[in-house]
């Protein structure tokens, strides 16, 4: 099969890879770029753990054809940390016990970042809506909602 050359920005860095036609963005990120922070959950758009930002907008990478992101900017959880410092959202997730098994966490954090980037002071209802495409078995969502509200309100530990 012919490989398709593909260039895009990955967490602020230019990357160039060759993908098979029909490869989805999740596979391209995990297997060709080596960024395993977007998780494979259902592969059908039903769980949200593969969520990434494409030009700042939340997308399910398992349902995104890799070739459609040519020239665009992809953000994943791998780019969230600022140097050695956790992002306030990550800090807030830790403070609020918003992760247990951790499998939904990358998608939850990306959904939360997409929300706070466009709406820094969301209401509780807006937070609930923002993560409604992401499922979590362990936490009961309450700690995740509280963490996102805490990050928005600047209530995070140093």
């Amino acid at each position: 099969m012919t490989k398709i050359p593909l260039q895009f920005r990955h967490n602020g860095r230019d990357v160039a890879i060759f993908v098979d036609g029909g490869t989805n963005l999740l596979v391209a990120l995990r297997e060709l770029i080596g960024d395993i922070t977007p998780k494979f959950g259902c592969g059908q758009g039903g769980c949200g753990t593969c969520s990434v930002l494409i030009d700042g907008e939340l997308h399910l990478s398992c349902l995104t054809l890799a070739e459609t992101v040519s020239g665009r900017s992809i953000e994943t959880l791998d780019g969230m940390k600022q140097g050695p410092n956790l992002h306030p959202l990550q800090r807030a997730f830790a403070d609020n016990f918003a992760a247990q098994c951790g499998y939904c966490t990358p998608g939850m954090l990306m959904a939360a970042k997409a929300l706070l980037d466009r709406n820094p002071s969301p209401s509780r209802a807006e937070v609930v809506e923002a993560i409604s495409g992401n499922i979590c078995r362990c936490t009961g969502y309450e700690p995740i909602i509280n963490a996102i509200l805490a990050a928005a309100g600047g209530r995070v530990s140093a």
Binding site: C42, G46, C47, V128, S132, Y141
Partner: peptide
Amino acid sequence: RDFVEYLMPGPGDI
């Protein structure tokens, strides 16, 4: 057959 059909509580149900 998948998480869309296998229903679980979501953040809006709590």
